[in-house]
Design a protein around this nucleic acid. Structure first.
Lengths: 334, 334
DNA sequence: ATGCCTTGGGTTAACGATTACTCAGCTAAA
DNA sequence: TTTAGCTGAGTAATCGTTAACCCAAGGCAT
């Protein structure tokens, strides 16, 4: 048996509306004495608000629905959720995630989320990509996180890949490196944008872009953990060639992990012979490599936080694409 | 404007109850023709069930609430959630997680979850531990995941640490290793239980337990990523001593990662000189180390799945402690 | 003294889905 | 032929909360 407002009202000898006003309506007119007494009775009885009832009345539940495009396995996903959650909590909202996995298509997942009548819905991608939301769903989704809506029908929050690559490359140049190789993730939007940032930083640093290489980390078009890795052979070839690099920029920390192993095999020291830098700042990897890895941390948390702020802001939704900066985490691999 | 049953009823020229029966009540008496027509109209109008309304009527929402005891950062947490989610979905339930972080105490988080009127609530711990649930909450929580309720007032699902340590140790022995060192995580329940399993396997394998060592991975009593690591010095000492180990069992994959680095420094080959095995099977680490790491995978997914099954089973809740087996993942470090 | 504003609180009607109850019409058993 | 039983569907109550109104009493300025 759960306690309802009417139980409290009966006990306090007032009407239900008075109880409702005392407990939830911040500015409802009533004496402080009455309010206090009602609060005490509620506490005593162990009253817990019934959000289903309130939600029915208001037409929405205090929820932000998140449709995630793939399995929520990566620590990045949880960072996005945590960012959302922190900001949502300030408005007394909860975050509620659903995954778009396997055979479940967008339409059905979106419906599943909408059944709960969330106040707003975000779409989150596990890696930075372009997503074409079917016309009929564009209106339901308030903000895209870590992805860009193909037709710019929805506000999008994405990491500033170009800026991050530019920054880390400039950092390598500033540390005295001149012969930098970028082992990039092929087939990804992030990779494309980073490559442009990488090249521009080289140009600005007075380094001939043509002498610097960009190599794919894996064989398959779209990066996957299961695709056969090319890292070992790339590194072996580079280090035995006439033009040994003095820095390797990696597509992510996992690639860096392989680069470490490959450099070790050829007897190269990090960072003395070759500096290594990367993207991601994946907790369990970057700080534990030997030496610890200098890497650009993705703004997952910030994207989540900003998404919640945007969704809960009363004003009309903007539709722009907002690029959020990475953060350089300096360790000792450079 | 959202569509309700009455909108459909009006369009179809029937009563609301008929629509309700047609769409949701599987066995409600009505002609297939009527049912079909109503379904078509619902589809056409884009009807989405209002779970807040249904929830109010039924007294509960189709939700399993999860109270997680720490930040949901680790991939393990997501595995538990995925296990829960998969099993819950079969009953048309959704999973809804809340984190017990920082200043938020159990009482307030539990209340926050209960406001949504979930059908059942689980308590999940990030690492295997004993949790004393205050008397007044023991009734609200249906099952403990990855932790054991101190007074056995709640059904608990935990990994079989003893069994796992026993299995991996026996596996090392079977592979011909005789001088095995266990670099364990100090101050943890899991560590204690594993140590017992380790010792028993040694005894059963005819190895004098006293000759085998158990060393702490870090200096602090309770394991933390930020505690100063002792791994490097342990390994250096072991490998330069008179009684070099031929196998090192690690408290987790991150410790194994450090052991790899330490063994590399002293020039020892894995697995030829020293076999390395571990616990966790952390995706990004275990398979990417060089050589790939043989490790015992924790049954997170299985615990989540079983938890959902238990919570949704109609029968009275059992109160036992159920130990779930790890899975040995053979790679090439042994 | 009279009308107006403020204070404190009650009444009542939703919100959307479910369900117990009712009823008409038809079939089939007695 | 009667009646019990079944089918198909309607009526209305209910869940807990909130919000739009309403009302009464007292204070205060005119």
């Amino acid at each position: 048996m759960t306690i309802s407002l009417s139980d409290i009202a009966e006990r306090a000898g007032v009407s239900v509306k008075t109880v409702s006003g005392a407990l939830h309506g911040g500015s409802a007119r009533m004496s402080n004495q009455t309010r206090q007494r009602i609060k005490e009775i509620a506490e005593e009885l162990g009253y817990v608000t019934n959000l289903a009832a309130r939600g029915m009345r208001q037409g929405w539940m205090p929820l932000i629905g998140v449709v995630a495009d793939e399995l929520i396995t990566s620590p990045f996903a949880t960072e996005i959720i945590r960012g959302l959650d922190g900001a949502a909590r300030a408005s007394d909202m909860a975050v509620f995630a659903m995954t778009l996995s396997g055979r479940r298509d967008l339409a059905s997942v979106l419906e599943e989320v909408r059944r709960f009548r969330p106040r707003a819905i975000a779409y989150a991608a596990m890696y930075h990509k372009t997503v074409a939301l079917p016309e009929e769903f564009a209106g339901a989704v308030g903000v895209m996180i870590n992805c860009r809506e193909a037709n710019d029908r929805v506000m999008s929050l994405v990491p500033d890949e170009f800026g991050a690559a530019h920054e880390i490359t400039s950092y390598l140049i500033d540390s005295g490196r001149r012969n930098i190789v970028f082992i990039n993730l092929p087939g990804l939007l992030a990779g494309e944008l980073r490559e442009a940032g990488f090249r521009q930083a080289l140009t600005e640093g007075g380094i001939d872009g043509a002498s610097a290489g960009v190599l794919p980390a894996v064989r398959r078009a779209v990066y996957s953990d299961r695709a056969p890795s090319l890292v070992l052979s790339h590194v072996a070839e580079l280090m035995s060639g006439p033009n040994r690099p003095d820095a390797i920029l990696c597509g992510n920390d996992r690639v860096a992990m392989e680069v470490y192993a490959a450099l070790r095999r050829v007897g190269a020291e990090i960072p003395d012979d070759v500096a290594v830098a990367s993207f991601d700042n994946q907790v369990d990897i970057a700080s534990r490599l030997d030496p610890p890895l200098t890497t650009m941390a993705l703004p997952h948390r910030a994207m989540g936080r900003l998404a919640a702020d945007i969704l809960l802001a009363a004003d009309a939704m903007p539709k722009e694409v907002r690029k959020l900066p990475f953060q350089l985490v300096e360790r000792s691999s450079v």
